[in-house]
């Protein structure tokens, strides 16, 4: 096991950031922590990278205890904090060189690891990091976190604020790194990225809601889900919200995801209700719950 966390809790002055969190990450696994801003992801990352000490509970990374063996851990993990953390006034190459050296290695030694990523930013190697676009900064930060060939890689919200194209490229890179045997713990607020992990944990308000593979986690969705569509989205949402049997209503793309309180839901009845509210082109179909639906159902 490359990461094991058991019963970790952490509080700040009056906020409990983590409540009795337990999970483990297998060797070579790509594990996703999925949850919104303020869910406790960053605190968990800092505890695992030895930057914070938990109030209670135990955690191991690469076989080392996060408190007692913090020096060993610091030698064998790569960490990309949430905030953009490179030196803006140093060039791409200077940044990489610096991080390589402080981790006791050189660019040359582990070039094979970062080659795929680095070739994309190499044309700009003499540009200051502050002048790079968001996607490129991300790639550089990943190179810097990888340059010392870590056994475990911690990526705290690496794709926040990055456009979908760069995000996709970034995840392709993570997949390739995983094949090289590096275990990866990554956090993200984007539910679509969750599908790309081996296993995911939903985290909200410092608590783990569920852990499973992306394929199986949707099975935890408690109800039958329906796609409801109509010509006026606003009216549709308002009407559904006032429907007496409504259990949940969430806009989802061009449809509304709807669950009903009853077990014997009747779509014709709903159709009639919506028509009486003045809506046209009404459609009601059974839908497959997505990871996001599951998260919302569990987070409620």
């Amino acid at each position: 096991m490359s990461i094991s966390v058991s019963n970790i809790s952490k509080s700040y002055k009056n906020v409990q950031a983590l409540k009795d969190v337990s999970f483990h990450v297998n060797e070579g696994e790509l594990f996703g922590l999925i949850g919104p801003d303020g869910a406790g992801k960053t605190s968990l990352f800092r505890i695992l990278t030895t930057l914070l000490i938990a109030d209670s509970g135990k955690a191991n990374v690469a076989g080392y205890d996060v408190v007692d063996d913090f020096k060993e851990i610091r030698n064998c993990v790569g960490y990309m904090p949430g905030k953009f953390s490179l030196y803006q006034d140093l060039t791409v190459e200077e940044n990489l060189n610096f991080f390589a050296t402080i981790f006791g290695t050189s660019i040359k030694e582990n070039y094979h690891l970062i080659k795929d990523i680095y070739v994309q930013i190499e044309p700009f190697k003499n540009r200051r990091a502050g002048k790079l676009s968001g996607g490129m900064k991300q790639k550089l930060a990943l190179c810097c976190a990888l340059i010392h060939k870590p056994k475990v890689l911690f990526l705290d919200e690496p794709t926040t604020g990055v456009d979908p194209v760069s995000r996709k490229e970034f995840w392709d890179m993570l997949k390739r790194l995983q094949q090289k045997g590096i275990s990866i713990l990554v956090s993200t607020p984007y539910m679509d990225e969750a599908a790309l992990c081996d296993r995911i944990a939903f985290i909200q308000n410092g608590e783990i809601l569920e852990i499973d593979s992306p394929q199986d986690i949707v099975k935890h969705f408690p109800k039958k889900l329906y796609n409801v569509g109509a010509d006026n989205m606003y009216k549709l949402i308002e009407s559904l919200k006032h429907y007496e049997h409504m259990h949940s209503v969430f806009p989802f793309g061009e449809f509304v995801h709807y669950t009903d309180k009853r077990n014997d839901f009747n779509s014709i009845e709903l159709n009639e209700y919506l028509t009486s509210k003045g809506l046209n082109q009404i459609s009601v179909e059974v839908a497959q719950p997505t990871i996001e639906d599951t998260f919302m159902a569990l987070a409620k």
Binding site: R46, L51, R74, Y79, K83, S85, Y87, I102
Partner: peptide, 13 residues
Amino acid sequence: ELGTMEIILVSPL
């Protein structure tokens, strides 16, 4: 402030 301190701390320095 930049967050680079986190990486420096996590390094063997």
